[in-house]
Amino acid sequence: MSAEIKYITEPHPITGVSNAKLGIWLFLASEVMLFGALFSTYILLRVGSNHWPHGWEELNVPLATINTVVLIASSVTMVMAWASVKLNQFGKFRMYLGLTVLLALTFLVIKFFEYRPKFDHHQVWLHDGTSMRGHLTEDDDEQDYILFTRDADKEHPDVHHEAEKIERERIFRHSSFGPGHSNFFGTYFTMTGLHGLHIIGGVIVNTWLLFPGAVMFRTNRERFAGRIECAGLYWHFVDLVWIFLFPSLYLL
């Protein structure tokens, strides 16, 4: 073909980057706008709210801390994977990229264990303005009441409550601690969920690069290094988003 698409591997003499690298930077710029909009939403809703809990009161900070460490580690292994390609060490490349994927999966598994209990735990708001937290023991649409087991009080953690009947007509609303619980949990699930989707996207891309995509390691190593670098940029970005999410949602 007389005309090939240029600058696929080699950098453009003026801009100094290859097509893919410019492309990934632009993509990340749009991602910044996406998460920027969500962070603005979070700030706006929080400022406009009159009972927004502190993250640490409601969320599992230890698990999230572990996850932070896991993600940072995965960023490091990602860089090592790229360096290994540059140094023409296929075995090491496989190991480091494999580790990156494993760490990402670890993050997701921990996330799952962080999410799940939220859906078992309930809160009931009554018409008289009070509310209680606990577990929904029975919620049968046929009955005009629900059975609800309150959590132990903070002061007497070992005194367990019995399941009690609450008439439906006294109840304004009941909800698990899922996204519908309050805007706090809404933003928490939406933002970490969207971030989780980005992690899954990264896992898919990296897994592809690890197996079928790795053929290019032999056929065109320079270009392959470029691909790993782009995947890496994306991965660092996803990591960075978490670095913002963690304090905003869990610590403040």
Partner: peptide, 8 residues
């Protein structure tokens, strides 16, 4: 730059 906020 303008589309992502709508996506959000």
């Amino acid at each position: 730059l303008a589309f992502p906020p709508l996506e959000a």
